[in-house]
Design a protein around this nucleic acid. Sequence first.
DNA 1: AAGTCGGGGAC
DNA 2: GTCCCAGACTT
Length: 346
Amino acid sequence: MNFTKILTHWYSVNKRSLPWRNTKNPYYIWLSEIIMQQTQIKQGLPYYEAFVTNYPTVFDLAQANEQDVLKLWQGLGYYSRARNLHASAKYIANELNGHFPTTYSDLLKLKGVGDYTASAIASICFNAPTAVVDGNVYRVLSRYFGIDTPINSTKGIKAFKTLATTLLDTKNPGDYNQAVMEFGATQCKPKNPDCTVCPLKNSCEALQQHRVDQLPVKLKKTKVTNKHFNFLVFISEDQRTLFEKRSEKGIWQNLYQFPLIESEDAILSEDFKTHPLVSRFFDTIDFSYSLYNTETIIHKLSHQHLYTKFWIIEVKQLPEKGIPISKLKTYPTPILIGNFIDSFNF
DNA sequence: AAGTCGGGGAC
DNA sequence: GTCCCAGACTT
């Protein structure tokens, strides 16, 4: 038995029961693939269920407000996926009359759909011979064939895509693709895989060479930058607060937050009122303030650490109209803001 | 080719 | 703490 046959057989026995494995409807497969990008199944599963329930067809998703889509996406991260998902739903519903693209090249035209996702949908839904290469595939192939080309180099990306294509079970490309990924997720795991029970143990290059823990090879990622975020949580006598949409590009685009003062260094409580970035904000407004979190909240993103303070600003009247505090939870927010709203006793 | 974009899980 | 996750997009 060769690599492909062993894996497809292994998959038929060991695959997990997942909701999108009971359908070939491209809308549902597309939904699952976008949601699962850079996301573990356990984390994404409830979001998939929520989207299927709230938006059972591509037309339902197309007719939704972006704000509602982002609210349903809240907490999952990489919010451009939600914005692109919504834009592509509108494109499919309105420009393609609801006819989902059926080829790799047409799928690739959808916003948020790259080589991986186009290959996945084309193979699973339309039996196209397009091999997927995700993090699981990089790991399985680099180990089994003993390849130390960095998986995130241009050369590596090309080489692994070509290799994956040659290994594809062209009779059943969708199952083969899912087999490699499932195998990587549950057997050929990143840390401490149990190679003694591996169906490929007799022919795995990495295992013979004792290099399992050294593969795949990945180029170093960029270093983390630190930022200081000061959120101004206004509370007026009529129970309103200021809440703004992050419209600029960058993290959390189109999500909502309290007015933000970003500072080079931490702002101390005793310096708050006289800090140039703060005093400039208030002019003539009369207010009293307190610091919500005495311990700085360190919100860690992939490449940013956000040292965060929530300042409670009590005022008689807001400088702008604002929104009722009772409506705060209806807005899509970063999880950092959402956690504060959930825990603060307004 | 290198950066950017989240949040959580596993170790 | 580190690395990773059914990657895509921008610069």
